[in-house]
Amino acid sequence: MIEILAKYNYWIVIILLCTGLYGIMAKQNLIKKIIALNVFQTSVLLFYVSMSKIEGGTAPILLNHGHGVQPLFDNPLPQVLMLTAIVVGISTTAVALSIVMLIYRQYGTIEEDQILELNKHND
C-alpha cells in the first residue's frame, strides 16, 4: 500500500496535468479552455500538497505545544505555497473570464476558430 502510495500521486498529477494541457490546446471554446487551464493548474497544486503529507503525520497545528512529545507534523510549507497558488489561479480565471465576456460582446461567439475567421474578414 505504502509502496504504491509513494509514487501514486505523481502519476495522478501527470495524468491531470496532461489532460488539462491537451484541453487548453485542443478545445476551441474559450470557456472550456479556461476550465482546462484550471484542471492544469490544480494538478500542480495536488503535486505540492501531496509532498506535504508525511506517513502518520498530523496537521501542522501545535495544539499541545510545550506539553511533552511533539507528534509528527506534516510539512506546512507546501500548503502555504499552494494557498498562494490557488489565489493566483482564481485571479487568473477571473481575468480570463472577463476577457471572454468582452470577446463575446465584440464577436458574438466564444469559439476560437470562429473568432479567427471573423478577424480575417475584418482585417
Partner: peptide, 8 residues
C-alpha cells in the same frame, strides 16, 4: 477588438 483575443 483583436486585442481581446491577443490578451486571452
Amino acid at each position: 477588438r483583436q486585442a481581446l483575443l491577443a490578451g486571452f
